[in-house]
Design a protein around this nucleic acid. Sequence first.
DNA 1: GTCTATACTATGATAGAC
DNA 2: GTCTATCATAGTATAGAC
Lengths: 221, 221
Amino acid sequence: MSERSSLFAGRVRHTAAPGLPPGGVEGPRRRILEAALTLFARRGFHGTSVRDLADVLEQQPSALYKHFPSKEHVLAALVQHGYAMHHQTLLDGLLTVGASPVDQLHILVEVNARSHAQWPLLAIVVHEELHALPEALLGPVVALRDASAALLLRILQRGSAEGCFDVVDLPTTAAAIGAMGVRIPLWFHPGLGLDIDTMAHRQALLALRMVGATTSSKASR
Amino acid sequence: MSERSSLFAGRVRHTAAPGLPPGGVEGPRRRILEAALTLFARRGFHGTSVRDLADVLEQQPSALYKHFPSKEHVLAALVQHGYAMHHQTLLDGLLTVGASPVDQLHILVEVNARSHAQWPLLAIVVHEELHALPEALLGPVVALRDASAALLLRILQRGSAEGCFDVVDLPTTAAAIGAMGVRIPLWFHPGLGLDIDTMAHRQALLALRMVGATTSSKASR
DNA sequence: GTCTATACTATGATAGAC
DNA sequence: GTCTATCATAGTATAGAC
């Protein structure tokens, strides 16, 4: 339980390449984003200088400014990429199930967990470096995050209204379910002998337990 | 659900004074720690300069170096203070209950939640800025954190062995329970119309649900 | 124990040649 | 689109007077 594992705090563990999900940008912009992703995840946005980034890329700092107008724009692109991918993942998951809140919560938690486990560097940067974005770059990005949160809240509300959930307290429960996913990059890694799909499935079971809905057509191990 | 609330990410919200729990240091060192706490929580360790800190204190940067040998030592003192207070809180809580794993899990989650809700600035700095500490200052501090994590794990293991818990998966469950507490400073605030004790009690209920132990002598609302 | 003054380095970003 | 060279500022930390 040591080697600096952590249920309560920590930072990123392994430097899984590529780190950045496919899609969106390509070419030199992508190369820069991948390098920045690793550095920001390990040392933080303010802990990473433009020179550090240029060193990893084996380029001069000035070369980066042909692709991004500032260091902050690099972070903004990463966060945007992360939230967009994540939100799309949630929507894709929801499309695979029916109208049952139980099934919807199950799949939402499952794909959320898979997403965080599969792209831990991106999850870290998005969650822990967002505060470094200036207001101007924050707005568009936060809208996507709020949309994802709203999905969870709506499912919990519908499940309560329909009587299939027994939700103790909406904000506390939603926050607990969200927290479970967000923290994945800080403790989960392949070396645990627990594969991503199993872990994701078990998080879904935990979420269903939290809302008092132990039975699910999808929950049968 | 907007105004930048956040189930999935965020930063600190309100600047509740004093922010730093009582005990330990006093005098000028304490004044410095309190100012640093607010700044580190809001802008991060690397996002805060010694000049920023001196400005808040209405002193010259050089004055700080009579009390701390470096900026990193200020962070180390904060993290140490935070982990020590937190661990003591957990132990104090456990002393108030008997040998039942159900009661022990209940009280552990409850006092953990209260601690995070009451000292959100400190929790933020401890959890999100720990990575900025150099190895030399990290060791002693991390030992306390691991001891706290071990308490939770042992309770879960005992409860499983005694048959009062049905734990789906030890690391996943422990991480989920820990995550729930760690994220409190990012969404909970007094303005929600949910007081600390109620929220803490409900987190304890959620934890008991996660381990399949819905009944508890302390859990009766 | 605080001040003024300053050393020295690192930082984000730009200019202009190729 | 990358390079060399450089600017202006901000960074951590120290020296020495009071």
